[in-house]
């Protein structure tokens, strides 16, 4: 029983991370119908920026938790800027081009960013300072690390903020309006390019937060860490119905849980396969995702 609950907690942690990445996919897809292959790279860049900023701050003798907070904000800002640059260079000029062209450009960007990270940060894993990542507590037969608590709390916080932003603010409404009808939103005075850049920035910021969390959880980051979680998060976005914000959150949780339980009870070697199978199964049997088209008010 303890084992089960322990897995549940681990699944929740991982699911939260996937949910944060999946939101970026879903929002970008919702607004310009593009699978942003480079999204996984924003996640990896976030993880690296976390190491870079936090290590530097820690070396200056700043309190570990202050380091964490500042590092998180800076990394999110950095990835937002990175995403805006990527959007401007690789996607915006192709707004009128064929789908295949944009997809290939996205793929090229992904390879470029991954190798850019490798060249500047080295081929080997980088570690977070252990004084931040270590620690945890015993609860009955369970071991819960402080980082897990932090990840879950931060995920919930970010999801709430995002929901408020998208559904309550004017800019959020403009985002949804642009996703629903680009010509009309221009006719009411919404600059689609600004909104799209903003969407990329928000998605990348969330991915960066997820990257830091994964880095804190496992202790290290690597330049190729974006690829597999990227596909899994995409599977989560598809599972929840692509373009649907609530769906992406639920989908992320499900994929995280499935992965942890499959690794725990079926086979840890094939744990990555299950996410792919879910992806293929959903696309084959129910391409609109579990949230479907009926519950459509949370589509962007």
């Amino acid at each position: 029983m303890d084992y089960f609950i322990q897995q549940l907690i681990n699944g929740l942690t991982l699911g939260g991370v996937y949910a944060l990445i999946a939101l970026g996919y879903t929002m970008v897809y919702g607004i310009i119908q593009l699978i942003n292959f480079a999204h996984g790279e924003f996640f990896a860049a976030g993880g690296y920026m976390g190491v870079i900023f936090i290590s530097w701050l820690a070396a200056q003798g700043v309190h570990p938790y202050v380091c964490l907070g500042i590092g998180l904000v800076l990394a999110m800002l950095y990835c937002a800027m990175l995403a805006m640059a990527v959007e401007r260079l690789a996607y915006r000029p192709l707004r009128q081009a064929s789908r295949l062209a944009v997809l290939l450009s996205a793929l090229g960007m992904s390879i470029f960013l991954q190798n850019g990270l490798m060249l500047t940060q080295g081929q080997y894993d980088k570690a977070y300072p252990t004084e931040i990542t270590a620690g945890g507590f015993q609860l009955g037969g369970l071991y819960i690390s402080y980082m897990q608590c932090l990840i879950v709390a931060l995920t919930i916080f970010l999801l709430v903020v995002l929901n408020l932003l998208v559904f309550k603010t004017r800019i959020g409404k403009a985002m949804r309006a642009t996703a629903q009808d680009k010509v009309m939103s221009a006719l009411v005075g919404i600059n689609a390019n600004h909104i799209i850049a903003l969407t990329f920035a928000i998605g990348a910021g969330l991915a960066a937060a997820a990257g830091i969390m994964v880095g804190l959880y496992y202790g290290t980051v690597s330049y190729s860490m974006g690829f597999v979680p990227g596909i899994k998060a995409f599977a989560a976005a598809v599972l929840g119905g692509i373009g649907n914000i609530t769906g992406a959150m639920i989908g992320g949780l499900i994929i995280g849980m499935v992965e942890i339980f499959a690794a725990g009870y079926i086979s840890s070697q094939y744990k990555d396969v299950f996410a792919f199978i879910i992806l293929i199964g959903v696309l084959y049997f129910k391409p609109t995702g579990i949230m479907g088209e009926n519950v459509d008010d949370t589509r962007v």
Binding site: A97, S110, F112, N115
Partner: peptide, 19 residues
Amino acid sequence: LYRMLVFGGVMCTMMLVRP
């Protein structure tokens, strides 16, 4: 070392200038 970096860059650039 720069091979894959150039690869990615070339793929993007081709799509922009000569799809």
